[in-house]
Amino acid sequence: MLDSAAIEDFILDQKKYEENIPYESFLPENVKFKTYEAKLSEVYKDGKRADGRTRDESRKMYIKLGALVEARGSCYLEIGDTKVLCGVSGPREIPYLQGYTELGSVDCVVESNPASPSDKAYSDALKRALEPSFCRHEFPNLEISVSVMILDASGSALAAAITAASLALAHARLPIFDILTSVTVGLHGDLLFIDPTDKEEALCMSYEKNSASQNHGLITLSYMSTADQITHYYQNGEMDLQLLLDTMDIGISRCKDIYALCQQRLMDEVKISMKTVTDTQNVEDSMKNLSTS
């Protein structure tokens, strides 16, 4: 370990090269520079990931519809440790609109918890993903606003945000062509991680200089299962052509799995609301019977 004198020397040494010194600079050497093997084994070891999953296994998902009282439709979604809250409101008139727009617009805002900063580009990506699934032609001159709060970004945050937003739209009883499901696939060398955590994402965005396969990167895609349409696609990294196409197929099949889950959850919600309606009707009927008799 370093003693205080050594640290002071180190600071003086670093001052020569000005600029801010990240606190990691003061860590002991063995913590600072991990070998590639150590980094890899931290995430993936003996066919198992850090949380015990195999590579093609998604994390457990939890969906709660109607999590917000004030919003027209809302959804709280958890994928592993990633937690996302989404609310939908509107339609309302587009403010400061000049002229006439045939298609309504979807206004998306993605915020994130300051403790887990997320990407600036998420709002735009969410808008691009939702636009094709929403029946915009039914809302000329109007906009609906979708706001997403990423409470905890532990990997696949954008995918979680897209799925949650689409479920919130469905819960708000707004017309959509199809429920949108989204998945993130990470790639590192020959390893393919479905639904990566944040550590796996970091690994997928780095590459090993000396290894044979330089393929690495992340793919987020959103898909409408019944309509068979990709509504958003974002890939970053470096990938061979064939690999890119194969990964797309895997992502789509995973989207279909999530779709079935979302459908079931929405059916449950409908059943519950139907039950409340019939219950109130029964009460009303019995009240009427009482008053007549």
Partner: peptide, 30 residues
């Protein structure tokens, strides 16, 4: 890239596409 590898793919503007068309599109772009 010069060797035909793909560094980044992103969609702009509204609209969606079938997966079959999309893979055709990627091959052409490369």
């Amino acid at each position: 890239t010069e060797t035909g590898k793909i560094l980044s793919t992103f969609k702009v503007g509204p609209g969606s596409v079938q997966p079959v068309t999309f893979s055709k599109l990627i091959l052409e772009a490369s």
